[in-house]
């Protein structure tokens, strides 16, 4: 796992004929630590950046950076995840895995954006929130929930750019906005492919299949309506030309801020609310639901045979954990 955190993935597999391998190559590309992160992108995009530190509650999380940027002459609040590009920086930045302090710093600085009429730009590239006790016991769940909630109602435009890994709730904590942009080789998922494989396939070996099944690539996420705009990457990927990558992001972000800036704040906030309010398809039954149409007779019989009374008695021995849960 440390190998993965350090971005050592071994040779990229030949994926020309195999869709699962192609998806996995995409995942590896998204995780390439040489990709530009928030500070590298800002260096290329911003005329000025004043980083602000600390959550005013506990500390300063180095895995999330936040501050005031001037981009093309505009005042913009920027918040983003910061992985390191080498081992030393990665250790300093906790491998880009944020604690609650990071999200609380982000909220503090995003609040400045609302109060001083600046739009918000976030850069998302994170495997997930730090999964250890230090984050859990200080309320990583609460920090993410509050940050998501804040971003749904902030009265200023928010543009989100997923630049690498959009990893689960940890990513979502900075990924609520009016426009969701993704770099071509980025991914977005409800759980890491490894975590999904461990739970659903009962083996981490199936991470490639899990990534494929979850439709994690930027293009697929756009088709699902989660991502609004996909920005093509230069050359063999963002890491081969960070400056050109930043230029392309800058162009799209400024264009989006223009569009969003023409809306009244009420329209903007209501549109953002509606955008997420309608996400996630469901059907109203009485029409037959797809599951019932697809199931074979044997499946139905098997299901019927396993029918329990509405109050099933628990098998002894603690936790039964049906598949289908998310762990990060």
């Amino acid at each position: 796992m440390v190998e993965r955190l350090l971005g050592r993935h071994g040779a990229v597999e030949d994926h020309r004929d195999d869709p699962v391998s192609a998806v996995w190559a995409h995942v590896q590309q998204a995780r390439n630590l040489k990709r530009p992160h928030t500070l590298e992108l800002l260096k290329a995009m911003a005329d000025e950046f004043i980083e602000l530190h600390g959550d005013r509650l506990f500390g300063d999380d180095t895995a999330i950076v936040a501050g005031l940027a001037r981009i093309a002459g505009r005042r913009i609040v920027v918040v983003g995840f910061q992985k390191g590009q080498d081992t030393e920086e990665n250790i300093r930045r906790n491998f880009g895995l944020p604690h609650p302090d990071g999200y609380r710093k982000a909220m503090r600085v995003m609040d400045l954006a609302e109060r001083f009429s600046m739009p918000i730009l976030t850069f998302v590239d994170v495997q997930g929130a730090f999964p250890g006790a230090a984050a859990e016991e200080r309320g990583i769940a609460e920090a993410i929930a509050k940050s998501v909630g804040l971003m749904t109602r902030l009265r200023t435009p928010i543009v989100v750019v997923i630049t690498g890994e959009g990893g689960s709730g940890g990513a979502l904590g900075l990924a609520v906005g009016d426009t969701i942009i993704a770099l071509e080789n980025s991914i977005y998922s409800v759980i890491s492919p490894e975590g999904c494989a461990t739970i659903l396939w009962r083996s981490g070996e199936q991470s490639h299949e899990a990534a494929t099944a979850m439709k994690v690539t930027a293009g697929e996420q756009q088709e699902l309506g989660i991502v609004d705009i996909v920005i093509p990457e230069p050359g063999d990927g963002a890491h081969t030309d960070p400056v050109e990558t930043a230029r392309r992001i800058k162009e799209v972000v400024l264009e989006r801020l223009d569009v969003l800036g023409r809306m009244t704040i009420d329209e903007l906030v209501e549109a953002r609310f509606q955008k997420f309010r309608v996400m996630g398809p469901y059907v109203v039954a009485d029409r037959p639901t797809p599951p019932q149409e697809r199931a074979s007779i044997t499946d139905r019989l098997r299901g019927l045979l396993s029918t329990r009374p509405s109050m099933p008695s628990m098998p002894g021995g603690g936790h039964d954990v049906p598949p289908g849960r998310e762990e990060v």
Binding site: V148, C196, F276, R277, G280
Partner: peptide, 25 residues
């Protein structure tokens, strides 16, 4: 009483965090 977001609906499940939080707000 829940193990979390449902993996089989992918990022749609992740977006339910936003949907529910926006209403709670």
């Amino acid at each position: 009483s829940s193990g979390g977001a449902r993996m089989q609906e992918g990022t749609y499940s992740l977006m339910q965090l936003v949907k529910t939080m926006s209403v709670v707000e």
